[in-house]
């Protein structure tokens, strides 16, 4: 069955099924997601809801094409059309990520030795933004996220958990991606910084981004969510 979508749809998840087979543990089979379907339009912020272990992060990683689903597919708005990221060639997936799909993961994973400001500028530079403009935009966002200027020339490896998380947020939100995935971006932040992230997410929605987020903090969730998508453990869903 082929679904049709209108032009405002930015993400479509179709019959997405994901399980893990652990070959080293006697081929243990762990079903996680079973035939998930939803579509998200520009300006919507969907918060994934479900208990720990229900598969919220797994769903997000399937959308990012970091995990490989067994069935179903994910479509992402890219260059004006919906592209099947699940079955795309690696270079196409990377192009979708570079230009259309931003992902704030739970933990910062970057190349050692690169200064913070450079890390935040990099996504802009690869999109062809001029060095000076990239620097200004990166600096503005780092300042807004309260990373002191004296730390900008240091690699974030030695930063605190909350500082690393803010660098992680900055290097994604510095680009106006049409589609955003946020995996607990406020988990280790204090109240002021949490509020800043809420504002950044709200602004992204207002400019027309479609966002899928995981937020355990109820205040943040209520502030940003335009809808809630419940993720239930696969075995229970099947029962």
């Amino acid at each position: 069955m082929t679904m049709t979508y209108d032009d405002t749809v930015m993400i479509a998840v179709e019959a997405l099924t994901k399980s893990f087979t652990l070959h080293l543990q006697g081929a243990t089979h762990i079903p996680v997601l079973g035939r998930m379907d939803f579509a998200l339009s520009a300006g919507e912020c969907a918060v994934l809801d479900g208990p720990s272990g229900a598969g919220k992060s797994t769903l997000m990683r399937c959308i990012y094409a970091n995990y490989l689903p067994q069935q179903g597919r994910v479509l992402i708005r890219h260059d004006g059309a919906l592209a099947d990221i699940t079955h795309a060639e690696p270079r196409t997936i990377l192009d979708i990520r570079r230009r259309s799909l931003g992902y704030v993961s739970q933990f910062l994973r970057v190349i050692p030795r690169i200064p913070t400001l450079q890390l935040v500028m990099e996504p802009l530079l690869t999109l062809g933004v001029a060095e000076e403009e990239a620097r200004t935009r990166a600096a503005t966002l780092l300042a807004r996220l309260r990373i002191p200027e004296r730390m900008w020339h240091l690699p974030p490896g030695t930063f605190s958990g909350g500082e690393q998380q803010r660098v992680n947020i900055a290097r994604v939100l510095v680009v106006d991606y049409p589609v955003l995935l946020l995996d607990e971006p406020t988990a280790s932040l204090d109240a002021d910084n949490r509020q800043t992230v809420v504002e950044l997410v709200t602004e992204a929605c207002a400019r027309g981004a479609a966002i899928v987020g995981i937020f355990h903090d109820a205040l943040v969730r209520d502030a940003v969510a335009t809808r809630v998508i419940s993720v239930t453990p696969h075995d229970r869903a099947a029962a």
């Binding site: 970091n66 995990y67 997936i93």
Partner: peptide, 16 residues
């Protein structure tokens, strides 16, 4: 496949 996909969600027993 894509590097992070092969490393984060390896399918083959040997890759795992």
């Amino acid at each position: 496949g894509l590097t992070d996909q092969v490393l984060d969600d390896p399918q083959h027993a040997y890759t795992q």
